[in-house]
Amino acid sequence: MPQAAAAIAVDDTVTPRQGEVLDAVLALLLEGRDGLTMTAVARRASCSKETLYKWFGDRDGLLTATVRWQASKVRAGNWDRQHLDADALAESLEAFAANWLAVISSKTSVALNRVAVAHAASGRSDLGRIVLENGRFAIGERLKPLLEAAREAGLIAFDDTEAAFRTFFGLVGRDVQIRLLLGDSITLSKAEIAADAARATRQFLTLFGAGRPAPRNRSN
């Protein structure tokens, strides 16, 4: 086996062709290919194993890039630290919440997380750690700068950034992810996702709103 190289580390550096390879990994996981191999990915993506090793290093590098590729879809909207107001904060939080709900409720994310949980329980691979570090933790680091900027602007108040993020994360996700992982047939429409995102944002700003009323419900 070729010596492992560094995996692609930044989502924005993924080329369209590499994105096709990562989509192939997700497709194999969706089909229940628990024993994912470089050979299977190369065959599905119509590329050589040598190319996979060159781009991603080894199997863990490929899985890490795949998780980052999926997690990169969760963004905190476009916001300007210098011109952050209550409406811009609410809009950015809603964008994050809607993106995250859409990602975690997708069949590919459910399949990926099921495999990661199984591997973490059995110790068969590092996939559980990979998903945790490059999914949940990475997404948190993506939103925390917005929360801290909003605190600096006097829009919200909290002592601990991680605790504030976990509160928002919980308000957004509720029990959706665990129900999906356990086989509940939840189907969230775009309208339902938007409504849930707006609700979670209002609740969060009510809890942490630094004495200000929560912004109006713009989804109506």
Rank of each mutant, 00 (worst) to 15 (best):
A5F: 12
E31S: 13
E50F: 11
L30P: 07
A120M: 07
L181Y: 09
K190I: 06
D12N: 10
S122N: 10
Q18G: 09
N134A: 13
K49V: 12
A95K: 10
L84H: 07
F208T: 04
A97L: 00
S122W: 05
N99Q: 08
E162A: 08
V117S: 06
A27M: 11
G57L: 11
F96K: 01
T66E: 02
E31P: 10
A7F: 05
G128N: 05
F204G: 00
V41S: 03
G183R: 03
R174I: 07
L146R: 01
A194P: 02
N217P: 02
F204H: 00
E192R: 04
D23W: 08
L171R: 03
I178R: 12
G32L: 07
Q203M: 06
K49N: 13
H83P: 07
G77M: 01
V10S: 07
A90E: 00
A5V: 14
R81L: 13
R166F: 14
A40C: 07
A210M: 04
N134W: 15
E91V: 11
V172G: 01
R33C: 09
V172F: 01
L146A: 02
I130W: 06
L143V: 07
A200F: 00
A24C: 08
R59Y: 11
F168N: 00
A153R: 12
R179D: 09
V14S: 08
I186A: 14
L52P: 07
V10Q: 12
G57S: 08
R59D: 13
R212N: 10
D184C: 11
R202H: 07
G123R: 00
V41K: 02
M1K: 08
R43N: 14
G32D: 06
A42L: 04
V115K: 11
I139G: 06
V176S: 01
Q18A: 13
T37G: 11
S48N: 08
V10W: 14
E162Q: 14
R129E: 11
V176M: 02
L22F: 05
A116N: 07
A6R: 15
R199E: 04
P213H: 01
S46T: 12
D175G: 09
G77A: 03
H83I: 09
P16W: 05
E141D: 13
A102F: 10
D175V: 06
E192G: 05
L30I: 11
